[in-house]
Design a protein around this nucleic acid. Sequence first.
DNA 1: GGATTTTTGTGAGCTATATCACATTCAGAT
DNA 2: ATCTGAATGTGATATAGCTCACAAAAATCC
Lengths: 268, 268
Amino acid sequence: MAEWQPDTGGVRQDGAAPGSGPHHRGWLVLSPYGLDIIESCLTCKMRADRIFCDLNTAALQAFETIKYATAYPKGAVLFVEGQAPRGIFVLCKGRVKLSICATDGKTLILKIAEPGEVLGLSATVSGKPYELTAETIDPCQVNFVKREDFLRFLKENSDACFKVAEQLSDKYNNACHEVRSLGLSHSAGEKLAKLLLEWSSRNGESQKAEPRIKLALTHEEIAQMIGTSRETVTRLFADLKKRQIVQSKGSTLLIRNKAALKTLATNG
Amino acid sequence: MAEWQPDTGGVRQDGAAPGSGPHHRGWLVLSPYGLDIIESCLTCKMRADRIFCDLNTAALQAFETIKYATAYPKGAVLFVEGQAPRGIFVLCKGRVKLSICATDGKTLILKIAEPGEVLGLSATVSGKPYELTAETIDPCQVNFVKREDFLRFLKENSDACFKVAEQLSDKYNNACHEVRSLGLSHSAGEKLAKLLLEWSSRNGESQKAEPRIKLALTHEEIAQMIGTSRETVTRLFADLKKRQIVQSKGSTLLIRNKAALKTLATNG
DNA sequence: GGATTTTTGTGAGCTATATCACATTCAGAT
DNA sequence: ATCTGAATGTGATATAGCTCACAAAAATCC
C-alpha cells in the first residue's frame, strides 16, 4: 500500500526513469517480477483484442517511439488521485486496482483494470489531476507515455484519437454503472448480487447454468467495491450460502441459483 | 415527464424530422417556445467559451452541414437510458436534466447540463445504449447530429475528435465526483453540504464571504441528486437554517457560514 | 380570487447496516 | 511443525435515514 516509486521501476537497463531521459529503443529486455515482457507493440499478439492497441501501422510505429515499457511488482502505485497527470499507462499484463479514497482512509474500489485498458487517460487528456489511484495487484507490464508526447501523438494520429474517445466512452459507461449501483440500490445485498453477476459475465461463464467465479478479492476489498463494511459482506455471503444461492470451494465461487441472484440484483 | 416526441420538435419548416430526411440549409428560423434561435454556429457569439464548439473554420463548416438546429419545450425528453444511440445533442441554450432511473421509479439526477455541453456523446461514440435520460428543464435550443454523420465528421476532423476526447474526459471527471459523493460520504448532510458548495463555485459566488445560490430545484430533485429522500433534505435544510449556516429568501439561498459548511462537507 | 396542485414541514416507528469486540480459521514464513 | 499476521465468522448495540401519514404553505390555474 506504500507508494512504490514508479520512477525507479522500469526494466530499462540504462537506469533512465520512465517519463524522463532520452528515448532509446532496442535495449535489453529482462523479466523482472516473473513477467514475460512483451517487447514491442508491433509484434504483440494480443493487439487485435484490445480497443486502444489495435492501431494502424503508422500510428503503432509512432507510439513505439514514445512509449516506455515498464514493469511493476504487485502493490506498486502507478499514480495517486490528486496528482498532476504525468501521462498514460497502457496496461499490457496484470491487473490494476482503481480506487478513490476519502480523507479518513475509507476507500472505494471503482474497478479492477484488465490488460488493454489505458489508465490515467482522462486526466492526461484534460490536464486535470488524476481522479483515481491506480495500484497493481499483480506483477504488471505497462507502457508509459509522457503527457506531452501523448498529446502530440494524438494530434498527429487521428486514428488513435478516435480510439481514445472510444476508451473514454467506455470508462464513462463504467462510471455510470458504478453510480447506478451506488445510488439506486436499496440494500447491500442488491449491490453484491449485481457485482457477482457482473463478474460472472466477464469470463464467458455467464451463459452456463451454474457459472463459476474466481474470487480474487478479500471480503474487505469486495466491501470497498460496493461501498459497505467488511462484516456486512461476510454476513451476506453466509446468507447466500445458507440459501443455496452460491457455494464456495476454495477461492472459486459457484453460482447455484442464478435466477435468485438476479432477483436479488433487481428487486433488492 | 411524459416522453415528448423530439422527432416532431424541430424548427425546420419543411417538416423533416431531425435525424431523417435530406439536409437543407437556409430555412426559415422561428422562435418557438420563446427562444431566440442561434441560427448558425459560424456566427454564434458564445462559441469561444464552449469546449466543443470552438472548432476551426473548416470543421465548423463541416459541422454546419450535418447539424439540425432544433428547439424543445420545457419537459421534453431528448433521449432515454437504454435507447440505441441516434446521435449527439449539442446544448446551445437552456438546461437539461441528466438522470438515471431504477425499475421501481427511483431516480438519481447526475447533473444539470448547461449550454455548451454535448449530450449523448459517449453512447454515440461507443454505439452502446444511452446510459442516461436527458430531459429539458427550460425551453432549449439544441443542435442534433445523426450518429453516422457525426462519426464520419470525427474521422475527417481530427481537431473535433480531440475536443470530443476532452468533453468525454470532462464527463468522466464529473462521474467520478458523483461516485465519490455517493460512495464515500458518511451522511446525507455531508452530501448536501458538498452539493451546495459545488453550486456556489459554479457561479463565481464562491469567492465571496457569503455566497448566494439560486435554488432552481425542489427538495425532491435535490434529494435525487444526492441519493436520499425528500424528507431528509427538508430536515437537513431546516437544521442548516437553525444553525445559522444558511438562510433563504425566496428562491435564493445565502450561505452565511461557509466554513461550517465546508466542515460538514469533509468531516460529515 | 378562490381552487387545485405542488411543494414544504414535521412527527413516529422500523430496519438495514455501521461499529465494536471478539473468536476462529487460513496462509505464508521460518 | 510452529509461529504470526491476515482474513473470516459472529454476536450485541446504536443510529441514520427511510417510510408512512398527515398539516401547512406556496405556487399555478381558471
